[in-house]
């Protein structure tokens, strides 16, 4: 039995996100499934008026050429505690993947973003 190939790329390491952010384009045409893991090395969240604690929201984006991007449709909340991990599964994404998103006002996060890919 041929084992399925897999690879994990750390697309951001010790990166500080404030305001808008986007990860670098990553080519993964060989893979049929992916998970973005976002681990908070440090985070300063905020509490919204109705009591929810938040930091930021990330959206998965896909691209035909690595230059022009469009939302894939998946989005997820970023961690609000140090060392907490958020993730998002993606399938059927074509050639390129990245995360794009925004932090809430007065929040910041230092992230380690791993992209786990599998054939």
């Amino acid at each position: 039995m041929a084992l399925r190939r897999s690879y994990t790329a750390v697309v951001e390491r010790n990166a500080l996100w404030q305001g808008d952010f986007a990860t670098e384009p990553y080519e993964a045409a060989w893979a049929s499934e992916a998970i973005f893991f976002v681990r908070a090395l440090d985070v300063t969240p905020t509490t919204l008026p109705y009591g929810t604690v938040v930091s930021g929201v990330a959206q998965v984006q896909i691209s035909a050429d690595g230059i022009h991007w469009v939302n894939e449709g998946s989005s997820f909340n970023l961690p609000i505690e140090q060392n907490a991990v958020a993730f998002c599964r993606v399938k059927h994404f074509g050639g390129w993947l990245r995360l794009r998103g925004a932090m809430y006002e007065d929040t910041s996060i230092t992230v380690l973003v791993s992209l786990a890919l599998k054939e």
């Binding site: 790329a9 750390v10 697309v11 080519e27 045409a29 050429d65 690595g66 050639g95």
Partner: peptide, 10 residues
């Protein structure tokens, strides 16, 4: 990180 590319151009 390195990646595997199929050299797709726009």
């Amino acid at each position: 990180p390195p990646m595997l590319s199929n050299l797709t151009m726009w």
